[in-house]
Structures are given as structure tokens and as C-alpha cells.
Design a protein around this nucleic acid. Structure first.
Length: 553
DNA sequence: TTAGGGTTAG
């Protein structure tokens, strides 16, 4: 073996083993002084390593002075800019490449497709797809998988599917991208079909396939399919794979089957921050906030560093439990981690303090934000509203508008919630109209719920009923439930029966018992015990029984 | 003689 070959091998091993910023600089300086200074392979490695260490300036400096740029080198620098979200530079480098003596290859188009996808530029994506087709790379697996992924991420699933079907003999990666694509667009059944088809065509699913499939299943009604997916993972020994395990934990928690999520989590050896975050989020999503906090504590003790989103979720659990003592501890912890100025953490802190009734701390935090945005305003408006400070809420709303901030759905939900808490029917109706006509925001279920509650609580039950009936069918059970709760308060049995019937017609299992209890409470007030018994029996049969409350007194 | 497309949470 020649000394030059030996040197190549040694340096290549070095570049693989040591990937820090410092070792990259050392490698660069060594290569520059060696006989390999003009070697495009090492130049490519160095660009990749610099980019990996967020040092685009050094990568670019190297690229700019490099005399003989290979396609690899062009691709690595284009990829570096695309990954750093500096899309215009990536595309201008592509233009320069077109006028150089190197022709773009399948990987070049794959990088560009990713760039257009991440910059939400569908026209650009279609354009690069066209150029790739003309240059003969359109049906390539590498280029094709990147374009299929980009189309599906942009929601253009039919274009993604059309391209996928036109590529002869797709490899496993391409199948995986297509399954993920259906997942992105919420078409889980097509994802499952693809999964069956890929096996039928002789392709063995791998960890990527199982992650894509598990990610499709996001609703309790899909739990039976979730079990099959988990079963398949067990069969091919992928259930303990770290990414697959996390995807399964998340799948079960979104299917509201937290016991199975926990069981998968327990089977992962050395669960990482993502696995732990998935389970904490699952507990929080299922309303088991105490367990979420307990697990967060375990995570802290284990030395893992939570990120901003996890801290915000945990603060949400503190808010739900009205646990300001633990909330303050998390606040202190966030300060120690340097996360307190993150907008998500900051807003979650305002939300936590206001829901725990510690309004002074919430307001102090809000006033301390140097650059207030819509999220921080929404948090403080909701906090003040929940604590009954309606006039201050509308002052903050005016302040927000004067600052030129555009209110969103959450702002109006918080304003309507304020009106509900303070019984401001006409103000609420005015806000609802302004949301629709002045700000062009289409009302969602929660806005309707607040408006119906406002009307119902003010005793305008008939008006509320007419309003609800005028909505597009099927009417959401949450909106009908809001009206039913008002019927319960105003002891209007006749209307309660009509509304409850409409809710039961919706045929949703979840929440049925809650509405039946509401109706039975109305019957009980009038001593209609036969009706009460019928409803309560129905609850035990259909819902496995609602746990009866126990009084401490 | 080596490099590049497709994975996990909120």
C-alpha cells in the first residue's frame, strides 16, 4: 500500500471518528498542508463536517477557493445551505453549478427538492421536478423519494402518489416515503394499503416503515390497528428499536391507551429524552397530570436535560392540577436551564400562574417580556379572563391591536372565555361578530361553545337552541353539551331531553356517559327516578361504569 | 475508495 493511500485511510478514519468543530479545523489544517490539499473527497468531507457543526462560513470559504469542484462537493455545499434553511443561497449555488462544467445528479435534485419543501415553495418544487425529469433523473429512486416526500409534506398527495407509481421497482426507502406521505396527509388507510402492497411485492419492512406506520395511527378509534402494528414490530424484533419504540409510545398515547404506551416505554433499554418526552406528553394528553409530573421528576433526577417544549407541557400539567408549588419549582428549573426566555416556556408560565390564581406573578412575567407577541398576549388575556378581570382583558386587547399585532383564533377564544366568566353576553356577541367580519376568522367549535354558554347561562335557552340548530350539520357534541349544561342549570327538562337526544344521535362513545349524567341530573331535580335509573344503567352497560364520587364528609 | 435520498415527541 502506498504512503498516500495509507494517509487517505488514516484521515478518512479520523474524519469519521472525530466530528467536532475543533477536530474538523485540525483535519482541515492538516489536509491543506498535505499532498491531499486538492483532493475533492476530503474537501467534501470537510464541508459536511463544518456544516454539521453549524460553521457554514468555513464550509463556504473552503468551497470558494477549491479549484476542482466535484459533483459531490457541489452537492455537499448546496445541502449544507438547504439544511441551514438558507434556501436562496442553495438555489443560487445550483444556478452557478449549471453554468460550471459539472452536471447536477440525482442527489443534487434531491437536495433542492428538500430545500423547496422546507421553504414551502411548491412552485419551485414543481419547477425542480420538471428540470429533474428533463435531465433524466425524474424516475430515479433517490431523486424520486425526495420529490415524493416534498409533495406530500406540501399536502399534494395526488402528485406524490402519481410520481411514486411512475417509478419502476421502488426500493424500501421509496415505499417508506410514500407511507409517510399518506401519514402526513392523514390518510392512514392508504398508508396501511401501501404497507401491505410493499410486502406483497417482496419488500421487507424496516424500522423506517414501522415508524411511518405507527405515526399514521393517531385516534382512539384506530386502537385495534395500533395493536396489529405493535404485534408486527414484535414479530420482526423492532419494538425495542429506539425510534420505533418512541413511535409506538406516541401511537398508544394518541390512541389514549396510556397503559400500553407505558409498557412499550418500559421495554426500551435506556429510553432517551424523546422517549421520555413522548410518555410525559401522553400522560398529559390523557389527563394523568400527576404521573406526567412524576415522570418529569424522574427525568430530572436521571440528569437528562428537558427542552423548551417539554418544560411548557409540564407547566401545562401544573396548571391543570392548580399546583403552583411544583409550578414554581419548574419555573426555577427553567431559569437554571436558561429556558425561561423562550416564548413557549414564558407563555406556559403565565398560563400556569394565572390558572393557579397567582395572577401577580403572571402579570409580572408578561410585563417583563421585552418583545411581546401574539402568544404572550393570548396567555395573559386568558389568565386575566379566567380570574374575572374583564376590563383589564379588553385593555390588553386594545393594547395588542395598537401594537399592530393581529389577533388569532386563540385570542378570540380567550376573549369569549372572559365574557363567559364575567357573564358579558352582549360583549361576547360583539366579539364573536368582530372575529368573523372584522378579522375574517372562521369560528371553531370552542368559539361556538363559549357563545352558546353565554346565551344559555343568561337564560336565553331558546335563542341558544335556535342558534345551535342553524349551524352546519353534524353539530359537534361539544356545542350541544354546552347547551345541555345550561339546560341543567336552568332546570329545563324538556329542552334537555331534545338536546341530549341529538348528542346521542351523534353516536360517539367518548363523552356519552357525561351527557347522560347531565340529563339524569335534570330528571333527578324533578324526581323522575325511573328515567334516572334507566340512564344510569345505560351508563354502566355502555361505558364500563362511571366511577361514583365518594364524599369525605 | 471512502461520501449523498427516506426515521421518533410536543
Amino acid at each position: 500500500m502506498s504512503s498516500q493511500t495509507q494517509l487517505r485511510l488514516i484521515l478518512y478514519e479520523f474524519s469519521r471518528k472525530f466530528q467536532t468543530k475543533l477536530s474538523t479545523q485540525k483535519l482541515h489544517s492538516f489536509v491543506t498542508k498535505s499532498r491531499l490539499a486538492r483532493d475533492p473527497f476530503f474537501a467534501t468531507q470537510l464541508v459536511r463536517l463544518y456544516a454539521q457543526n453549524d460553521d457554514l462560513a468555513s464550509a463556504r470559504k473552503l468551497f470558494d477557493v477549491f479549484p476542482d469542484r466535484s459533483v459531490f462537493l457541489w452537492n455537499s455545499v448546496i445541502r449544507a445551505y438547504a439544511k441551514a434553511h438558507q434556501f436562496s443561497t442553495a438555489f443560487s449555488l445550483f444556478s452557478q453549478m449549471l453554468s460550471s462544467d459539472r452536471r447536477p445528479d440525482n442527489f443534487t435534485y434531491a437536495c433542492l427538492a428538500r430545500g423547496f419543501s422546507e421553504s414551502f415553495d411548491t412552485d419551485g418544487l414543481r419547477c425542480i421536478h420538471g428540470i429533474a425529469m428533463v435531465s433524466g433523473h425524474g424516475f430515479d429512486q433517490i431523486c424520486g423519494s425526495a420529490i415524493v416526500k416534498a409533495y406530500s409534506k406540501a399536502g399534494h398527495i395526488s402528485e406524490a402518489s402519481k410520481l411514486f407509481l411512475s417509478i419502476p421497482d421502488p426500493d424500501v426507502a421509496l415505499w417508506n416515503v410514500m407511507i409517510s406521505g399518506y401519514e402526513c396527509c392523514g390518510i392512514w388507510d392508504k398508508g396501511i394499503n401501501m404497507f401491505n402492497l410493499m410486502q406483497h411485492r417482496g419488500n421487507l419492512p424496516n424500522c423506517y416503515t414501522m415508524v411511518a406506520l405507527a405515526t399514521c395511527l393517531i385516534d382512539p378509534s384506530l386502537l385495534h390497528i395500533a395493536w396489529s402494528v405493535h404485534g408486527f414490530c414484535l414479530k420482526i424484533n423492532l419494538d425495542t428499536h429506539s425510534y420505533v419504540g418512541c413511535a409506538l409510545v406516541n401511537m398508544y398515547s394518541r390512541c389514549r391507551c396510556i397503559a400500553s404506551a407505558r409498557s412499550v416505554y418500559n421495554s426500551i433499554s435506556g429510553p432517551d429524552l424523546v422517549a421520555c418526552s413522548s410518555l410525559i406528553t401522553g400522560y398529559s394528553r390523557c389527563g394523568n397530570h400527576k404521573e406526567a409530573l412524576y415522570l418529569f421528576n424522574e427525568l430530572r433526577v436521571s440528569g437528562k436535560k428537558p427542552d423548551c417544549v417539554l418544560v411548557a407541557i409540564v407547566l401545562g400539567s401544573c396548571a391543570e392540577l392548580s399546583d403552583s408549588v411544583y409550578g414554581k419549582e419548574v419555573h426555577g428549573y427553567a431559569i437554571r436551564l436558561g429556558l425561561e426566555f423562550d416564548i413557549k416556556v414564558h407563555s406556559a408560565l403565565i398560563d400556569m400562574y394565572s390558572k393557579c390564581g397567582v395572577l401577580d406573578s403572571a402579570i409580572n412575567l408578561f410585563e417583563g417580556i421585552p418583545e411581546k407577541n401574539i402568544v404572550s398576549f393570548n396567555s395573559v388575556i386568558l389568565g386575566l379572563g379566567l380570574n374575572g378581570f374583564a376590563s383589564t382583558v379588553f385593555e390588553k386587547f386594545t393594547e395588542m391591536l395598537e401594537m399592530g399585532l393581529k389577533p388569532d383564533e386563540a385570542t378570540f377564544a380567550a376573549l369569549l372565555c372572559t365574557c363567559c366568566h364575567s357573564g358579558l353576553l352582549y360583549k361576547g356577541q360583539e366579539i364573536f361578530e368582530r372575529m368573523k367580519f372584522e378579522f375574517g376568522i372562521e369560528p371553531k367549535t370552542e368559539h361556538y361553545v363559549y357563545l352558546v354558554k353565554l346565551m344559555g347561562m343568561a337564560g336565553k335557552l331558546e335563542e341558544a337552541f335556535e342558534f345551535v340548530m342553524s349551524l352546519r350539520k353534524p353539530i359537534d357534541s361539544g356545542i350541544l353539551g354546552a347547551l345541555l349544561s345550561c339546560c341543567e342549570v336552568h332546570e329545563n327538562t324538556q329542552l334537555a331531553e331534545v338536546v341530549a337526544e341529538k348528542i346521542l344521535e351523534n353516536g360517539e362513545e367518548r363523552g356519552r356517559s357525561v351527557y347522560k349524567v347531565m340529563l339524569s341530573n335534570v330528571y333527578a331535580r324533578y324526581g323522575r327516578w325511573d328515567e334516572v335509573e334507566r340512564l344510569r344503567d345505560g351508563i354502566s352497560e355502555s361505558f364500563g361504569g362511571k366511577l361514583p364520587g365518594i364524599s369525605w364528609f
